[in-house]
Simulated assay, not measured.
Amino acid sequence: MALVGKRIVVVDDDFELRELVGDLLSRDDFVVFRAENVEIAREILAKEQLDLMVLDLMLPDQDGPMGASC
């Protein structure tokens, strides 16, 4: 399976970590969306067809895989 162009959202409240992971994925030709919280991640999910999520499981506004409601 070709990975070039796959669409990924990185969800992390830590700005530096979110940017680092996003930048590393972008270098490998992934299309990267970044979200600092669950609300923004849900907005992205509603608008974009994604292939993968990289998710911080300890977010201040909601822990776990976004309440398993995504």
Results as ranks from 00 to 15, higher is better:
V38E: 04
D13S: 14
E48A: 15
A35Y: 05
A2C: 10
I8L: 07
D63N: 15
D61V: 07
V31G: 03
G5K: 00
M58T: 08
I8M: 07
K6V: 02
L57Y: 10
G67S: 10
D23V: 02
F30K: 02
D23E: 11
M1W: 00
L52A: 10
G64F: 10
V11D: 06
P65Q: 14
F33D: 04
S69P: 13
D56I: 04
I44A: 11
D14E: 15
F33T: 01
E48R: 11
V11Y: 12
F30S: 03
K6Q: 10
E43I: 03
E36F: 05
R7T: 12
M66G: 01
G22V: 02
A46G: 11
A2E: 13
I8Y: 07
R42F: 13
E39W: 12
L59P: 06
C70M: 09
V32M: 04
D51K: 01
R34D: 01
V54L: 05
E48I: 13
V32G: 01
L45R: 11
L52K: 00
L20D: 02
E48D: 08
V38S: 08
M53K: 03
L55T: 14
C70L: 15
L50F: 12
A41F: 10
D13Y: 03
E19A: 06
G67Q: 10
D56G: 02
L50W: 04
D51W: 00
V9A: 06
L50I: 06
A68Y: 14
M1R: 00
G64L: 09
G5I: 05
D51N: 13
D12R: 00
N37Y: 07
E43W: 04
E43V: 06
D14S: 04
D29H: 15
A46Q: 14
V9K: 02
L50M: 09
D51Y: 00
L24S: 07
C70N: 07
F33I: 04
V11A: 01
G5Y: 04
A68G: 13
L45I: 14
R34I: 07
R18L: 07
L25S: 13
L3S: 07
R34P: 02
R27L: 13
V54T: 10
V54F: 01
D14V: 00
L25Y: 11
A35V: 02
F33G: 02
V21D: 01
A46L: 12
V9R: 03
Q49A: 13
